[in-house]
Nucleic acid binder design. Structure first.
Lengths: 216, 216
DNA sequence: AATAAATACGAACGATCGTACTCTTCTTGC
DNA sequence: GCAAGAAGAGTACGATCGTTCGTATTTATT
């Protein structure tokens, strides 16, 4: 299962005569996604973004119909990056707690490697979108829902494999795992101290130990 | 111990001839603190704030030397509110896990009662301040540090009272408690579902059960 | 080589941002 | 009652916001 559900990746027109345009657009959105984690989606101005990628304001803006479309496209780019950096490493072979550990590790790793300078993209933009209705918020909520569903899937697999107690409250466990990752991101970015990444990892480990099948 | 360390609460001039001014300023900052949790500190414009409190832009602005001073004063107002709503209820009598439970309950309660419409004030503004250096960020980091120190204090007391294992890794425990509260706030605001407040509470309970003194 | 489309630029727009100034209104102390 | 000072309104400034338009330059098809 992938978090990607829209069609931004499809080239749409079969023609080969749009190379500069596509790479330019990709370059814009790549920069936008990174910048949005520090300035926010609303705080990211087109002028700033243009000078950052070395283009004129109008030249950049020609790629999008409006600021809102730019924001939506930026979110989709972030989804692609997140998919590549965090989800894909966990998609091969593994299942259950094994897959969960890979997910947690790759998530914490993408924080440490500062794939986004402001930490987790979705956590960063969620803070400003949480009370601002619209398609941008809807999409972020959807992505978050898919992410939580993936965590739940891992826990259900773990139950099937006998890795955790069959009486486990899955929803509660997913909440606590997500809590560790959110806190790791939040404190790591705020305090600028990688120890909180380690604490996040240990938090998940502690949880899995607690949920391990208790001897009857 | 209080999170308040600045001198905003002192009336400074003993004179009684500034009543309208003080209450007006307080009213401005009260509105600003609430509005900042939805629009953000940077996104909160003076024009919006003025029309929200029913004043002219210049009339409001006369109370502050600059936008930055308004932001700092808004943070101090949020500190006062947080102190009253969350800290004070836990300051009387209790100690150890008892005090911790009161802290957790009053924090979750202030979320549910929507004291701030955008959830926890500091979590909301931290997201935009995390990569924006300056006195505002410094102050929020300081408040967050005081908060974490208070949680640690509770755990140390709990150890002294024999409520938790003396070999407990306090720093890790504080991280996990903070994680539950952060996640409760984040998911409650994002998903608009109070079940996440309950999950946060249960998360802390689960943690304390795990840390309870194990029979030697 | 010629045409058409895609891409980017420069200039300018109305609106809004933070900020500064002056002027009126009201309260307070002598 | 009068002067002093605080509180707020009104207006206007330069800068920047998102956005539009016309034009030049590049690229791909014929």
């Amino acid at each position: 299962m992938s978090l990607i559900s829209s069609s931004i990746t499809s080239s749409k027109s079969g023609g080969t005569h749009r190379l500069k345009g596509q790479s330019s657009r990709t370059n814009i959105l790549l920069t936008a996604a990174k910048l949005a984690t520090t300035k926010g989606l609303a705080g990211l101005s087109i002028g700033d973004l243009a000078s950052e990628v070395g283009m004129s304001k109008s030249g950049l803006y020609a790629h999008f119909k409006s600021k809102e479309e730019l924001e939506l496209a930026t979110i989709e780019m972030a989804v692609i990056i997140f998919d590549r950096e965090v989800l894909q490493p966990a998609m091969s072979a593994h299942a259950g707690t094994k897959r969960l550990h890979v997910l947690v590790d790759s998530f914490l790793s993408h924080l440490e490697r500062k794939v986004f300078p402001g930490g987790c993209f979705f956590s960063a933009v969620a803070a400003e979108l949480d009370t601002r209705p619209g398609p941008a918020r809807d999409r972020v909520v959807e992505v978050l829902g898919n992410w939580l569903a993936l965590l739940r899937q891992c826990m259900i697999e773990a139950q099937g494999l006998g890795q955790i107690d069959p009486n486990t409250d899955i929803a509660q466990a997913v909440f606590e795992i997500e809590a560790m990752l959110l806190a790791a991101n939040f404190l790591f970015v705020m305090m600028d101290n990688p120890i909180h990444l380690t604490q996040g990892r240990r938090g998940v480990e502690n949880l899995l130990v607690r949920l391990a099948v208790a001897p009857a």
